[in-house]
């Protein structure tokens, strides 16, 4: 009995060790599906719709990567993660990539051994309060009770903001956005703080969004982007350049509607290189030559994803702002496809 248990353990451990050594790309291709970590539910960024299909801006990135790698945007297993579980899930290999409003910071990149593959949303931390409190500035929040998701950079920014302005506050730690919403609406906290985009998304789901104001102060830089584990640079490249392809596609005017037509060949060499009718950029990454066509047709280019999920015509109503193309005065700037 003892021996068989032992042998079993050895066998399982050996298998686990064997799996860990294969490259992420091979693993994903063998599995036939991408394991993508997302939030537990933040409307507009990642949330299951009425049919149980995951939808949203971050989800769009996952689907684009799945389309580029496997040719099928629906070949994604979405793994909901909380602020506390996301890094463990990625480090342990439970997920292949994380697209979960995660802020790119030095320590996460260097010390936690992750690799950020770009920024898909430039954000900053804001505060939301009920209108009836009559607060018009974050500097009036001395003594307030603040709902805060634990294990996030917002938690640290919050502490710094109140300390540097010589104010006190009472943190109410919560795990998920849904929990925060419930606590905030019940009045268990006066203020909810998270990334401004998250606040807008949360407010859009309220019964009466006009009864809540988002304060003008943005207290931090929060560049949000997808990330992968350190050490597998080929996989990191795939995720990075898929995101870049979405951004470049918007700049070059490639949309989900015209991508098939443009893929046949155009007189713009950069479009030709990217869409595979000239050279073999896909082959250099170990993908098929139509990887970018697949990624763009999955959910459209960056601009289409933005407008459909969180743009001004959605209930969330976020303006492009910093997230406009560099040609429009924003920060989005994809390196050339060459």
């Amino acid at each position: 009995m003892k021996k068989s248990v032992l042998l079993g353990t050895l066998a399982v451990a050996g298998l686990a060790a064997g799996v860990a050594s294969a490259s992420t790309l091979e693993e994903v291709q063998a599995r036939g599906a991408l394991n993508c970590g997302v939030t537990t539910g933040l409307v507009g960024f990642a949330a299951p719709d009425a049919n149980g299909e995951w939808d949203g801006f971050d989800v769009g990135v996952c689907r684009a990567v799945a389309a580029a790698v496997l040719g099928d945007p629906s070949a994604v297993n979405f793994v909901p993660t909380t602020g506390q579980t996301r890094f463990t899930a990625l480090a342990s290999g439970e997920i292949d990539m994380l697209a979960r409003n995660t802020t790119w910071t030095f320590s996460r990149d260097v010390d936690l051994r992750f690799e950020f593959t770009g920024v898909n949303y430039y954000d900053g931390q804001g505060f939301m309060v009920p209108r009836e409190l009559g607060v018009s500035s974050a500097m009036e929040l001395d003594g307030a009770t603040v709902c805060i998701q634990t294990g996030t950079t917002t938690e640290l920014n919050l502490a710094d903001f109140f300390a540097s302005n010589n104010m006190s506050y009472e943190p109410v730690p919560i795990e998920t956005n849904a929990e925060a919403q419930q606590q905030y609406l019940a009045g268990a906290c006066d203020v909810y703080t998270t990334d401004a985009s998250g606040l807008a998304a949360t407010r859009a789901t309220f019964e009466d969004p006009t009864a809540h104001v988002i304060l003008p102060e943005i207290i931090s830089k929060e560049p949000l982007g997808p990330l992968v584990r350190h050490g597998d640079n080929e996989w990191g490249d795939i995720v990075r350049w898929t995101l870049n392809a979405l951004i470049a596609a918007e700049e070059l005017g490639i949309t989900s509607a015209n991508v098939a037509e443009l893929a046949a060949g155009t007189n713009n060499p950069e479009i030709n290189r990217m869409l595979g009718s000239e050279g073999d950029l896909g082959g250099m990454m170990g993908l098929s030559s139509d990887w970018a066509v697949n990624a763009i047709s999955a959910g459209g280019n960056y601009g289409e994803l933005f407008e459909r999920n969180i743009g001004e015509n959605t209930p969330i109503g976020l303006a492009r702002g910093l997230n406009a193309q560099w040609t429009d005065g924003g920060l989005l700037y994809s390196p050339p496809f060459r």
């Binding site: 602020g83 506390q84 890094f87 463990t88 010390d111 051994r113 634990t150 294990g151 730690p173 795990e175």
Partner: peptide, 24 residues
């Protein structure tokens, strides 16, 4: 305690600290 946000040792050392430092 984590279910209701009570800051016990599981939430501080085993939660936020691990998350911020990556020392699982």
């Amino acid at each position: 305690a984590i279910a209701v946000g009570y800051m016990d040792v599981r939430s501080t050392l085993g939660g936020i600290t691990i998350n911020q430092t990556g020392r699982e």
